[in-house]
């Protein structure tokens, strides 16, 4: 396996890790007003992601940094080409991060309400736009021999990409609902379970449409197999949720997102950004890559430290494994009394 292939795989893994992890905390953010009907319920809802969301987001930063290091031309063309879309994502992520951190600092209903709006918007917008962006990467963009993006912001809003955005939006919402069902008890848990079936059906339809359409781009038996496996995991997750097996349900939606991501990256390979102008102008794992020397160093760093990161992030999830409920958040009145 060539070093460039290893790095394509690693970057796919980093993106997949990001989508699976931040996927559910985007979902929790989007569902906040639906599952959190009062102040305490909203606290319960947000606490489920409180200790972990920031660590989840670092997967994105590392995916971005790794793309810069391993495929500088991919990084350069992609980030300058998707300029305004990325700006919107950046603004959303900034606002959302601040909202999650500052919301609880002041105990005031208006303060909470305003930040809650930011959390919902700041979760929904990237959930949609990451799907749009990934779909465009797989589909390809207008690009000449100079490897510069030759389209505009509106080039990115094609039907295939919009369906991709809708798919990630729905899948993340579902993933968040299943996560909340696993991590809470009481009202939040019940309301989260209630949105699973409608979100599940919508996700199945959107994902089937999107992944099916993806097959027409550059399908093979492997991409078909991955897409079918994604669909089966999704349906399996929904059944598990119905049966009250919440851990299995979460594993199901996590696997769905991972397999959908694998479908996209497998379709993309060996390109990293195809040109719709002329396939000869496409950026590939070969013409976009760093030198073997840099890739070798980066491989060593990744091989040593990625498992370590997975280990201590896993530890965090273990520490905060307990289900949360209203009883974990005594009201101020009870507090004074105690």
């Amino acid at each position: 396996m060539a070093l460039t292939d290893i790095w394509f795989l690693l970057i796919a893994v980093l993106w997949t890790g990001y989508l699976v992890l931040e996927g559910f905390d985007f979902g929790v953010g989007m569902l906040l007003p639906i599952v959190g009907r009062d102040a305490i319920d909203r606290k319960v809802t947000l606490r489920t992601i409180g200790p972990v969301w920031d660590g989840n987001e670092v997967w994105l930063l590392v995916a971005g940094g790794a793309t810069f290091a391993a495929f500088p031309f991919w990084y350069a063309t992609l980030f300058s080409g998707f300029y305004l879309a990325l700006l919107i994502i950046l603004v959303a992520l900034i606002l959302r991060g601040i909202a999650l951190e500052y919301r609880g600092k002041i105990d005031d209903a208006t303060w909470h309400r305003r930040w809650d709006l930011v959390i919902v918007g700041g979760s929904a917008v990237p959930a949609l736009l990451w799907g749009v962006a990934l779909a465009n990467i797989v589909r390809g963009v207008p690009m000449g021999a100079d490897h510069e993006f030759a389209g505009s912001f509106f080039t990115l809003l094609n039907p295939y990409a919009l369906l991709g955005g809708l798919t990630t939006l729905l899948l993340f919402a579902l993933h968040g609902a299943v996560f909340l069902a696993l991590k809470t008890h009481g009202d939040v848990h019940d309301r989260a379970l209630k949105v699973v079936p409608p979100l599940g059906i919508a996700s199945v339809v959107a994902a089937a449409g999107f992944l099916g359409w993806t097959q027409t781009l550059d399908g093979s038996w492997i991409t078909w197999a991955l897409a079918v496996a994604a669909a089966l995991c999704l349906i399996g997750g929904l059944i598990a949720s119905r049966l009250g097996r919440e851990g299995w349900a979460f594993l199901g939606t996590a696997a769905t997102i991972a397999l959908a991501s694998a479908t996209l990256f497998t379709t993309l390979y060996p390109n990293v950004l195809p040109s719709t102008t002329d396939p000869a102008f496409s950026l590939t794992t070969l013409n976009a890559a760093s030198t073997p020397y840099t890739l070798k160093i980066m491989t060593w760093v990744a091989v040593i430290f990625t498992p370590l990161v997975v280990l201590y992030q896993g530890y965090t999830y273990w520490v905060f494994r307990a289900r949360l409920g209203r009883t974990d958040f005594p009201t101020p009145v009870q507090k004074v009394a105690s």
């Binding site: 409180g50 200790p51 972990v52 920031d54 660590g55 987001e57 670092v58 930063l61 590392v62 971005g64 940094g65 790794a66 810069f68 290091a69 391993a70 495929f71 500088p72 031309f73 990084y75 350069a76 760093s290 030198t291 840099t294 160093i297 980066m298 760093v301 990744a302 430290f305 990625t306 990161v309 201590y312 992030q313 965090t316 520490v319």
Partner: peptide
């Protein structure tokens, strides 16, 4: 500069950002 400049940036993320964010949550 990507062949040179990208590596420390990626290593910063992998070694430092993960450490900071995860353990701050803890």
């Amino acid at each position: 500069v990507g062949d040179i400049f990208g590596a420390p940036l990626a290593i910063e993320g992998l070694l430092a950002f993960f450490l900071e964010s995860t353990f701050l949550g803890l």
